[in-house]
Design a protein around this nucleic acid. Sequence first.
DNA 1: GTGAAAGCGCTAACAG
DNA 2: CTGTTAGCGCTTTCAC
Lengths: 335, 335
Amino acid sequence: MPQITIKDIAQRLKLSTSTVSRALRNHPDISKATKKKVIALARETGYQPNLIAQSLQNQSSNTIGVIVPEIRHSFFSSAISGIEDVAYQAGYAIMVCQSQESHEREVLNTQALMAHRVAGLLISISQGCGDLRHLRAVRRQGIPLVFFDRSPEGMEASQVVVDDFQGAYEAVRYLINKGYKRIAHLAGPVNINISRQRMLAYKQALQDSQMPVAEDLIISGGFSGKDGRGGMQRLLAMENPPDAVFAVNDPVAIGALKLLKEQGVKVPKDMAIIGFTNDPLAELMDPPLSTVDQPAVQIGREAAALLLDSIKNHDRSGRIITKTLKTRLIIRSSA
Amino acid sequence: MPQITIKDIAQRLKLSTSTVSRALRNHPDISKATKKKVIALARETGYQPNLIAQSLQNQSSNTIGVIVPEIRHSFFSSAISGIEDVAYQAGYAIMVCQSQESHEREVLNTQALMAHRVAGLLISISQGCGDLRHLRAVRRQGIPLVFFDRSPEGMEASQVVVDDFQGAYEAVRYLINKGYKRIAHLAGPVNINISRQRMLAYKQALQDSQMPVAEDLIISGGFSGKDGRGGMQRLLAMENPPDAVFAVNDPVAIGALKLLKEQGVKVPKDMAIIGFTNDPLAELMDPPLSTVDQPAVQIGREAAALLLDSIKNHDRSGRIITKTLKTRLIIRSSA
DNA sequence: GTGAAAGCGCTAACAG
DNA sequence: CTGTTAGCGCTTTCAC
């Protein structure tokens, strides 16, 4: 039992398909009487317009593509939730892919989404990302593209981010004011803007307080708990370990914190730690993790709104808009 | 710059579109030479098949629809992650919608997904769900449907679930063996299978130990932290409050636990609590929450696999398969 | 006001 | 081995 089409309705009503189509779209040419009949039968038969056919016709689907590193990460699932919500309100559906932090998979995801002729693309890039050809290809096809949270170095594009520098600066500043002397940084991949900004802020904050920036106190890694754990291991193994750590994000901070608990290191007495994101975990952990709050759902909402905007405006113009949301330092017990 | 089509390639190579189409799909009829030329040009020009057109032709898209109550809930984001992963491997994309626990929105989501002509539908129903017409409509159109985790009472359909009865039974049994005498249950909506099973197991476990089942110790509510908080409030207000609680899921348990902490009630000394799901939060909280582990990612994977299976087999047969995964009682410190 | 015809990009008979 | 034709469901000129 294939789904009912405009043709079925036309036949039953002895009308042409074009009339039915127009009636359904409330075209002024059609008489009230026929409109009524058509609508009634459509409802009665449970007619659903075939969006596939519509898309083919319009040369554009009402679907937007979303690529994130990992759906499970609370920041991303929250962002996706915000995206879904505004997309839904606007009559768009979302196609969600995860790159699993793999550049290759990100490329394939991008291609798949392009093949699906999504009307626009929202992406938070994978940590393995260096080559940007796949993203340039998107632009070249005239598909609007908006980055959220993680954007690459070296590509001008609209994005919705948080003031990473400011947020990180405040966090490190707080640590300094609290009297910590050797503050380490568990950093993220340098080819991603957020990592860079947060690291730059870390260095700047130290310098602004006439404190030395020791390169061996900066451990570069990825964005996962495992990276946090590994980084903290290296820090603890040092002959002169730090007394505080600023982590690039909460998963890293939490990974590090777990290790600390296992090793019986007292937090924050022996080692203070502060994260970035405000993962729901942060509040409930023991000890509760101090962190920089990023409004994840809101970031998703804004990104989707921005994208829909450039879809509507047929943004051939290539206007580049950066939307920066505020962070908020949340002090709990870990620092 | 619209995307390049088969026609463009045909013209440039002075071939017919059908030849190009066949060459691209590696049809045996086509000569090696032309295949090579076509493939080369396709690659060179960055040709991407228009999946919209293909779908219209095939009368079925390579997209599967997913509806969950809330993307942000860790159980669901994990399940979605599993779904995405197997869908991706099979060349399918996923469209994700959230019902926000609203029946109305779930209906609209379902309709949107049907209009998008998804090849199949994966759904975990909203707590407001009672009327099943929208789901029956899906079946009527011959669209394969698989429930995961939350399935409705009163509809035969394939599903991937966990042995809710068994998991809940073990949890309550554990509480009983530990010597708790007044064990309450923060229950979920009764029209959803998982709530029913977990409640039935709760009652059964009590009965099997010759313990009374007190209806006032069963607080029915929803699946959220707020429900847990509210339920616990009512429990604490009783003249003879319980000494232990089995919550229908972790969000509820966590909501309850937060309240307990605020009120200074000692857990598990004054009140033990045990949840269901094994949310990542559970392990890290203070105190760590005892719970019943549900393999969320695996549930998503199995559900997707089952769905793909019935899509492949053109499952007009209406074979109903229930896949039941194992739970595991995880004892931490809250009980 | 309504209908006929063409076409979106692709595939699948059916010819040759 | 390759081309012609028709059609998936819909919208949109262009006629009448």
